[in-house]
């Protein structure tokens, strides 16, 4: 063997290796989707799909007639996630803009790693904070007797998604060519105008990606909401109601459900709904992003 063919071989082996890795990701995704689909399909032999999505009451272990309605859970999940984002996005982008454009580089060098460490705190710990700290505080300011409600979950999820949003937004803002900012300042714009009118729009795709990842974290998070939101099965009527999200419901019931029963399949169907919801959100974000970029060009 000559040296040249050996190197050629190495090159090809490496290429195959990377291709293999890429394929694994796709196979995993397709595999999960197929598994969810086949495991949830049998549920609909006994449960009407329309009722599944539109009925409010979930009580599969009811002594008389089991009820399989997930509307309350869908609304709860969306409510908690939406409120979490309302809290986390302004703060996250604010911090990111501060770190990339205002803060002294020494401050940034310290603050950014600290924020990233926040992401490493286990969700059980955050949930515990919800029980002993955020819950009682919310109860006090709202004049209610307890704070195990949707807002508690949303506040905690906001805290959990902040590191993702800040870190990736900051990267996006730092990646904006410095000439943009310099040109803006040279034209007489203030620092505020430069950040809001020039840098944020230029980094928008990265910031939206950051928000999407934060949202993914929020909607899929289980342990924290399980501990903090009270898990009542009622249809939520406000932020101070105890709610049960899709993820909590799966976590609560999958451990005890007898295998291969309608209840078991229905839990997979909830997983499928969750999967489709996140998929749809990602798709919408993608479409929106593309539209925006075309508009810009």
């Amino acid at each position: 063997m000559t040296k040249r063919t050996l190197r050629n071989l190495q090159e090809r082996a490496l290429r195959a290796f990377f291709l293999f890795n890429g394929i694994i990701a796709i196979v995993a995704l397709v595999g999960i989707f197929v598994l969810l689909l086949t495991s949830s399909f049998p549920a609909f032999r006994e449960v009407d799909l329309f009722k599944f999505l539109s009925e409010k009451i979930w009580d599969p272990t009811a002594p008389d007639i089991p009820l399989y309605g997930i509307l309350s859970q869908i609304v709860s999940s969306l409510m908690v996630t939406a409120v979490a984002l309302v809290i986390a996005v302004p703060i996250g982008i604010g911090v990111a803009a501060y770190l990339s454009d205002v803060a002294h580089w020494r401050v940034r060098e310290i603050v950014k790693p600290v924020i990233e460490v926040l992401a490493a705190i286990p969700s059980v710990v955050i949930g515990f904070l919800g029980i002993v700290l955020v819950g009682p505080f919310l109860a006090k300011i709202s004049g209610r007797t307890h704070g195990l409600n949707a807002l508690n979950g949303a506040v905690l999820l906001a805290v959990m998604s902040l590191p993702t949003i800040i870190s990736i937004s900051e990267d996006a803002l730092s990646a904006v060519p410095s000439a943009y900012g310099e040109a803006s300042l040279a034209l007489g714009a203030s620092k505020w105008q430069t950040i809001v009118r020039v840098k944020l729009p230029a980094a928008l795709s990265g910031i939206i990606a950051a928000i999407m990842l934060g949202m993914g974290r929020a909607i899929g998070e289980t342990m924290t909401v399980l501990m903090a939101t009270g898990n009542a099965r009622s249809f939520p009527t406000g932020l101070f109601d105890s709610v049960r999200t899709l993820t909590s419901n799966i976590a609560i019931e999958l451990g005890e459900v007898p295998y291969f029963t309608t209840h078991y399949y229905a839990l997979f169907a909830i997983g499928l709904v969750l999967f489709l919801m996140t998929f749809l959100i990602n798709l919408l974000a993608d479409i929106f992003l593309r539209k925006y970029q075309e508009h810009e060009l």
């Binding site: 029980i131 307890h146 195990l148 501990m227 898990n231 009622s234």
Partner: peptide, 18 residues
């Protein structure tokens, strides 16, 4: 359906105490 469903006895006690 308004019952808060807690993760264990200890969590129920924790809730009642406050």
């Amino acid at each position: 359906t308004d019952m808060k469903e807690m993760n264990g006895n200890a969590q129920i006690i924790e809730g009642i105490l406050s």
